[in-house]
Design a protein around this nucleic acid. Structure first.
Length: 217
DNA sequence: CTACGGATCGTCT
DNA sequence: GACGATCCGTAGC
């Protein structure tokens, strides 16, 4: 008997997800207390299916908005036509136009009865970078063989433009949608999370200084 | 590099 | 009728 030259072995392929099966965060992720969700979102992957392709980025900056008592929150004056969705559950998109130009992506969070949400402020682009840059009307430059992701989605208005998100996504359910969802990402150590006051909420009196902005350091 | 002001419109008062 | 959970281009250093 002759020895085979090569040992037969199983070829292990990366586990392929069924095309119609999306590996996404479930509702229990969003139902946790909002400050925790805002921090747990850091490192997670926001995925947008756009023209048949995945646009994805790692969430690196968030802000928590804590309901009627929070004077920086849109719900501080009670329910209105604009903020309605914040009262309607968790894991839903609350998106609104700011300064007449920029859309801002929020996710409703916290226990069902609490009208709270998390603003996603910044992404590090991972997939579909060329398309994102095109959506932003930026010309991509290759440096050291890879594309620079700077300036593509490093702001709440910019990331909505990069992912082509607007009013059409108002109320979209991240636990069900086939055009936007959040996937698990690398673990982020607690010590890596920097906390600062939120941006642009100087008017919010005693809430202006609270450290409800979270950034991966 | 920081500082400043204009853009632009849906929502709320 | 006022204004904002921003961005970008320009100006000055």
């Amino acid at each position: 008997m002759r020895k085979p030259l090569l040992k037969a072995h199983k070829i292990i392929l990366p586990k392929e997800e069924p095309a119609n099966k999306i590996h996404r965060l479930k509702q229990k992720f969003y139902i946790q207390p909002t400050c925790q969700v805002a921090q747990n979102m850091l490192g997670k992957i926001l995925v947008r299916k756009f023209q048949g392709q995945r646009l994805a980025g790692k969430i690196i900056e968030t802000e928590a908005y804590l309901g009627p008592k929070d004077k920086a929150s849109h719900v501080t004056g009670g329910q209105t036509k604009r903020n309605r969705i914040v009262f309607e559950g968790s894991g839903l998109i609350y998106i609104y136009l700011c300064y007449g130009i920029h859309w801002q992506l929020n996710i409703t969070t916290g226990p069902q009865e609490k009208p709270e949400c998390v603003l996603i402020r910044s992404l590090e682009p991972i997939e579909g970078i060329k398309v994102m840059a095109a959506n932003r009307s930026l010309s991509l430059k290759k440096t050291n063989g890879s594309y620079s992701t700077a300036n593509i989605a490093d702001g709440p208005g910019k990331l909505c433009q990069a992912l082509n998100l607007d009013k059409q996504f108002y109320g979209e359910d991240l636990t069900k949608s086939n055009r936007i969802w959040i996937e698990k990402g690398p673990h982020i150590a607690k010590e890596k999370i920097k906390k600062t006051p939120r941006i642009g909420v100087d008017y919010a009196e005693n809430w202006a200084d609270k450290k409800l902005r979270y950034i991966i350091d």
